[in-house]
Amino acid sequence: MRPDAATARSVPAPIGRLRRLRALWLLLVAAALLVLVALSVAIGTRDVGLSDIASALGGKVETIGEAAVAMRIPRTVLALLAGAALGLAGAIMQGVTRNPLADPGILGVNMGASLAVVVGVAWFHIETAHAYIVTAILGAGAAAIFVYVIGSLGRGGATPLKLALAGAATSIAFSSLVIAIVLPRADIAGGVRAWQIGGVGGATFERIFPVLPFLAAGFVVSLLSARKLNALALGDELAAGLGEHVATTRAVAAFGAILLCGATTAVCGPIGFLGLVVPHLARLLTGSDHRWLLPFSALGGACLLIAADIVGRIVARPAELDVGIVTALVGAPVFIWIVRHQRVRDL
């Protein structure tokens, strides 16, 4: 065999091994998710037996143990959906802005959705699930546009540092506005404060069903943006030279992330740092190819939020810690590590 022919045949081998390795990691993460789902159903503030779990899965709620398991099932489903949505949204935002610090919480998107919901409850008396969801999505979109415009001002346009600073300032300002609106309203203060922490406790399928179409649309739009985000990672000029409409690509991908963030915030409240941590962990396994990064981020986000919910149930028995507190405890050190080391630059 000629040397050039042997070389040509050997070139695809590393690519094939990389794909197999990524597929293996994807299967392992999916398996870990299944294990966490089972643990989430089995573990809580009350100990239950296998018979209680089997009966509850069959629809029985005759004993206290069966009732406890029956309450954990929708809670687990909501944690899975919300974690996948926030993990995927974080990866999209980091790809759109080419900013390793991008996150729905840090960029002010979650707090924009929160402010919109609080204004809707306090001033317009919204009550239905669809009103909550639509209001949160509109608030998330308005916050994203506001932060991008502010971060684009001045020399150099929307740099990663300016976007992060604009998002942090916007989050603080919106949080202060939420407090200012809620303080004089004793009739809504308790519910809003509990919701503002961010959690999946008290989930029911009646709360989950209205948000499913919005999450499905967000997942589809986001996952279909993978190839275009790979082009954006090369830089705006090169992406435009390859035939991509840079502004349209950014807008469509950001719309998918806004749908996911707004819908999740409407149901769970603002849950921070998950969209920051998960994409970085996913890159360690799969690299920067968004065709793999986005599914990994969705599965990883679901795993992390379910794990955080399990930890929150057992560390303070018989009370519970909401997942928003647990993810903040996990995410804050990771945020500091990213800022100090800046090792993830290949966005």
Rank of each mutant, 00 (worst) to 15 (best):
A13I: 00
A13R: 00
I15P: 04
G16H: 02
R17S: 07
L26W: 05
L27K: 00
A30N: 03
A32K: 04
L33W: 02
L34V: 15
L34G: 10
V35W: 13
A38H: 13
I43Q: 07
T45V: 14
R46K: 14
V48T: 14
V48R: 08
L57S: 13
G58Y: 15
G59Y: 06
V61K: 15
I64Y: 09
G65Q: 13
V69M: 00
A70N: 05
I73H: 06
P74E: 11
R75Q: 12
A79Y: 09
L80I: 09
G83V: 11
G83W: 00
A84Y: 05
G87R: 04
L88E: 05
A89Q: 02
G90D: 01
A91F: 06
G95I: 02
T97L: 09
G105F: 06
I106G: 01
N110A: 12
V117P: 07
V119P: 08
G120E: 08
V121M: 15
W123F: 15
H125L: 11
E127R: 14
H130I: 15
I137A: 07
I137Y: 12
A144I: 11
F146T: 15
A158F: 04
T159Q: 12
T159L: 13
P160S: 14
A168G: 11
S175W: 07
A180F: 15
V182P: 10
L183Y: 09
D187F: 10
I188H: 08
I188S: 09
V192H: 03
V192G: 06
Q196G: 04
V200I: 15
G201I: 13
G202N: 12
G202E: 13
T204M: 05
F205H: 04
E206L: 02
I208W: 03
F209V: 14
L212Q: 05
F214G: 03
F219Y: 01
D236A: 14
E237M: 11
E237Y: 10
E237H: 09
A239K: 03
A239Y: 04
G243R: 02
V246S: 07
T249S: 11
A251K: 03
A254H: 01
F255H: 01
L260N: 05
T265M: 06
G269Y: 13
G269V: 05
F273E: 02
L274Q: 10
G275Y: 01
L276A: 03
V277M: 10
P279T: 01
L281N: 05
R283Q: 01
T286Q: 03
S288R: 02
L293P: 02
L294H: 08
P295E: 07
S297N: 02
V311K: 13
V315I: 14
A316T: 12
R317G: 10
A319M: 12
E320P: 12
L329P: 05
G331A: 00
P333D: 08
V334Y: 15
I338D: 05
I338N: 08
H341C: 01
